[in-house]
Write a protein that binds this DNA or RNA. Sequence first.
DNA 1: GTTTAGGGTTCG
Length: 748
Amino acid sequence: MLDKAAMPVQLLKIVNGKPETPLPSHLQKEDLKHLQEGFGHTNKYFQGIVILYYPLTKLSDGRDFFKLVLQDMNNSCSRTDSINILIYGKMAEDCARVVRHGIYTKPRTTGASETASMSVAPKYAYTSLNHLKDGTIVNLYGVVKFFKPPYVSKGTDYCSVVTLVDPSNVKLTCTLFSGNLDSLPKIYKVGDIVRFHRIKIREYNGQMQGITSVGFASLTFDGTVGAPVVPRTSSKVYTFMDEEQKTVEELRVWAASNLSISGPAAKLSGVQPMLFFDLTCQLVGKAKVDGSSFLLKVWDGTKCPYPTWKVPVEARDLEGEKILLHQLRNLTVDVLVYDNHVQLAKSLKIGSFLRIYSIHTKQASAVDEDVSHIEFHLHGGTCYGRGIGVLPESNPDVKELKAFLESVELADSQNMESMSSVELDGTFNNVTDLESHLQRCQQLPVTVLTDHQDLNNTELKTILNSTAPQQYRIRAKLRTYKPQKLYQSIKLHCSKCKSLQEVPDGDGFDFILQGSAITAPNAELQNTSWYDSVMWTTQDEKQRKIVIHFVKHDEMLQQPEDTLLMIEGGTLKEVWKLTKIFKCVIPVRSTEDDLELLDLSAPFLLQGNIKYYGCKQCSTPKPIKSLSSIAAEQRPSWEPTEIAQVLGIELLQYVFIMKFTLIDGTGALNAYLFDYEKFFQIPASEILSNNFLQQKMQMTMNTLCPPGRKLDDLPWLECFIKSYNVRDGMKHQVYYQIFDTTVAEDVV
DNA sequence: GTTTAGGGTTCG
């Protein structure tokens, strides 16, 4: 490549290892080890891979200067495997231009470094995974497709196995070793993005393999589109600038549509027997069991719906806060870890946040048990990435978990406080006293009125014998209720035609999205005065076209959390991911002259976890351009009601519909609860997508109607009910509905 | 100088 300074720079295309156009015959290839100081090398050439290059700079005499490092790809393990090349003058500029275009990452054009250092930051060259060659040491980027969190190997080091993919669709499995746990990449989930420097490439079993070499260093990034690009690393010094940021962002977008990344992680409340899953949790206690197994007591704030096993251990072997272990005894689960995981498990700190990968839930029953229980095992070995990872407090999943655990702990400690005050109070010396105290508590109603306190109670018998319509105040007990599965109580209600309908499931939405993706995007509807559009085609064989229209405000794009966007051709997963980042997402498709909403069986708007639907009967969808009127407002709030109104959509409201069977000793009647939010103090719109609220509602219902209680022991409810007539042909019936009533403050 | 593991679920 370098012959005489006057020779113009040419880019040679290498096909099947040979230059497409042959090199001049007088040139001879020279091996790096035959180069000698002080010798002329006229008519010789050296071939190598650009592993590093520096920005083109000007010397004090005005000449251009370019430095790059080439590595001999056939000889990279020897000590003299690379050569520094310094180029001056016109050729420096030409060479810099060729190098920039020949490799994966493009260099910045400015020379400023982010650090205070005076030195010029080097430009690393990155090899894409389809261009790896045996025996080379390279720098590369990849999306994590599979990984084994660091574990203790049988040798002297920790080991972590990581499989990467990149947009060339080539996979590379890397086996990384280090005596220092901290210097292995901090990968927490599939989809994370890594940058490896100085990884050695070898061929193993007919495939390329990566392995740590001297000076190996890594950066790891969250793979979520839109998340901050913050590297996780143990290196104190690393180069990371605009190009690197751009590369990570590009890989995120690529991964989002080309890699299947599993959805939200399983919680203890969602475990099923006989499966493997990853659990994100906090360590509450640990204990040695025997030589080959070790016990971890963990919780994630949710309750496992099955009885769980308790591993018997000596009390003195159990490490952890005794009080907390007792308080959380019904929420913690015992995880038994085996063999190679024991050493790591022993070293874990109580209180730390863990992700336990590929836990096995096993159904079993002990001899003295009637019902079976669930056991949690982390078997020996590292198949499927089985292992334990410690998550830092800065991890977004940990932040979310912490907030959740704090809310659970708060509720729990309040109960503990009231219990201990009862227990500590001298008046309650024995069980009978305690019971009578509890009974007195039960005299207090578990629901209260929000209005009409001056009205007197009416007995149910009197109400049943009266004509409708009328309103009453009652004091009654909740004998039973329907539906027992609380999520079934959520319906969609149209306030215009009064119809009720089931909340559609995700499959129907997926089907409608798939159907709409057939419609080709209309280029004329992109980049208008009120939105900017971005279109791309997926890399897979489907070649799907996706367009995102970002609605502007004052001709400017807003922050993602304030932005409404419309999407054409997206999948369920893509739409769902966008809702995590942007304020509002509206799925649309192109017509000849405007974008339009999809079928109203699909949500017309998604905000956070909430899907908003329109009434098919009462809506008259208007062209999408009607939205521009909201975009032009002073501060667009993107309220669903307002969006629905301008789009001609009759917004369906989420409601709880339940049937309460009430008794008071004089009679029994069924009263309907029709509630948006007031009764449970939980928005009906949020409950389907919020596990915590579902548990909260279940707890509320357990207080109103404690399972397994005798009639006498049920708590009292204070309610307002109204009677009304329903005539259906010849049939006439009186119905009752609860209103102006809410669950008591101490019950919520 | 340079092993370890080299992805693909279970003894308990």
